[in-house]
Design a protein around this nucleic acid. Structure first.
Lengths: 199, 199
DNA sequence: ATGATTTCTTAACTTAAGTCAAGGTTTTTA
DNA sequence: TAAAAACCTTGACTTAAGTTAAGAAATCAT
């Protein structure tokens, strides 16, 4: 649905893809033709738990929250992804099985998306897109590993300080109980940690 | 160095690759020709921290430990990888920058390996190998995410119980202080958790 | 603008992991 | 096979996070 695409989003999309593979007008056209455009409201879910992720979204602005619900009904925020980038529940998307997580827009945003079927067809047809897929998978792994290592190496305080250093603009706008959950602690503890660190 | 390859290892290699991509004799030959064979002693390092990972190893048997040293000289076990599978420090390999981690053989084993340069050439030449790379990257991401989620969802006890359920054969042979580190706790704590759970 | 909801803090108390230290057991290796 | 090294457990004490509860502050919705 190319005629619906906003100019700004398109440019950002192309620039982002260009970080990973060289892309000429023809290939860009082949790719972008499979994408659709969508306006997303703050708090809207891009993916609902229990449903199978059949889309990958491109975020040109804003950020999203990943969360799931434990047996006891407790909500856990497992991740934040910031623009620009491709996002989905890879665990659900890759194996085409129901997602554990919900993906929620933290701010109003415009996104592009491609379906699983169309992406697989592109992978088959275009070696370069397959490469893009490989490089993106490698990058999300690296990001995930960093998050994991922060649990093994750093205290909750360290992880909190890293977060505000890395994403100061965003952290201001993320409710403390989401952050606490992301850090693996309770809101009360993060509140205390925060005070302790301003001693 | 094909003439050095052991029959068993080769068969396991082909079967493993076949889980991800269809592979005929010709393609198998193209791939295996770039691999070399190596005997590895127990406790030998497949990769040393500070050096850049320029190989990917195929493990047909046994398992390895990933560990690194924190500033204060404390050793942290971040991961175990079990055969069969491809292993390296992806973070180092992908960006060709010095590794943080060491990779250590936990048992005597035979491995195959391919260099970074040769793998990149295969990626360029063979779309199917590029696909294999994508699928493997996706799989390591899924594994890493599971490990990460275990920190957000489960107690140290739960994580320990999961580990002995999933890898009973191996866990018996892993020193408790490695396991403790992997679980993000101190050996004394794991020792106590273990006793508590046999109440 | 105001009532409702969400978000954040504080306090008192509980629970579990960290720390330090010592001693016992098992495994390695010379 | 004997000494050394690595590994595991236990106890006493410290520290920090979890829990429960209450209320203040900020934000949202009508």
């Amino acid at each position: 649905m190319q005629e619906q695409l906003s100019g700004i989003t398109l440019k950002q999309f192309r620039e982002f893809v260009n970080r990973f593979i060289e892309i000429d007008d023809k290939l860009f056209d082949t790719i972008i033709n499979k994408f659709e455009y969508k306006k997303v409201a703050r708090k809207e879910l891009l993916l609902e738990a229990e449903k199978t992720a059949n889309k990958i979204f491109f975020l040109s602005e804003g950020f999203v929250r990943f969360f799931h619900t434990k047996d006891e009904g407790i909500e856990v925020t497992s991740d934040f992804y910031f623009a620009p980038g491709f996002i989905t529940s890879f665990t659900s998307f890759i194996d085409q099985k129901p997602a554990i997580v919900n993906i929620q827009a933290m701010v109003k945003m415009d996104v592009l998306f491609i379906t699983y079927k169309d992406l697989m067809a592109l992978y088959d047809k275009e070696h370069k897109v397959e490469r893009l897929g490989r490089l993106l998978a490698e990058q999300v792994f690296i990001t995930s590993e960093k998050h994991l290592l922060s649990f093994l190496n750093d205290s909750p305080l360290d992880r909190y300080l890293w977060l505000i250093k890395e994403y100061p603009e965003y952290v201001k706008n993320i409710p403390l109980h989401y952050l606490a959950s992301y850090l693996g602690i309770k809101p009360e503890s993060l509140s205390r940690i925060r005070n302790r660190s301003l001693k």
